[in-house]
């Protein structure tokens, strides 16, 4: 008869943990996908600015390379935010250089 209790307790705990954990996991996955979407958009924009810039801006190129390296590493939310920020700064540098 003991197995009945054990099985019941396992089911109860499992269901409880699942109910608590699954929405949390879902929310964090969505947040990660959103952050990476922003990062990819930022990198693409920076790429366009680089192509439109008449001269070379080594600092901006370094920043964008770092952002692309981070993207290749496929990290979590923090990595995506960092890549976004780097791409934004590179984009600004190129735009300033283009407007000269």
């Amino acid at each position: 008869m003991g197995w009945v209790w054990a099985a019941g307790v396992v089911v109860l705990l499992g269901a409880g943990f699942a109910v608590a954990a699954v929405p949390r996991l879902r929310a964090s996955a969505l947040e990660r996908r959103t952050a990476w979407s922003s990062a990819r958009a930022g990198i693409a924009t920076a790429g366009v600015s680089r192509d439109a810039c008449p001269g070379r801006v080594p600092e901006a190129e370094a920043l964008l390379t770092r952002a692309e390296t981070i993207t290749a590493g496929r990290g979590g939310v923090t990595a995506a935010r960092e890549a976004t920020e780097l791409a934004r700064r590179a984009d600004l540098l190129w735009r300033e250089a283009a407007h000269g």
């Binding site: 959103t34 922003s38 958009a41 192509d51 283009a98």
Partner: peptide
């Protein structure tokens, strides 16, 4: 250059909509 950047952002917004990402994010893009 500005137009291409705009088209890039539109592409990103398109794929964000397809991926069911939050509305706020799509609105930002």
């Amino acid at each position: 250059a500005a137009l291409t950047r705009g088209i890039t952002a539109l592409t990103a917004a398109r794929s964000a909509l397809d991926d069911d990402l939050p509305d706020a994010h799509v609105r930002d893009l």
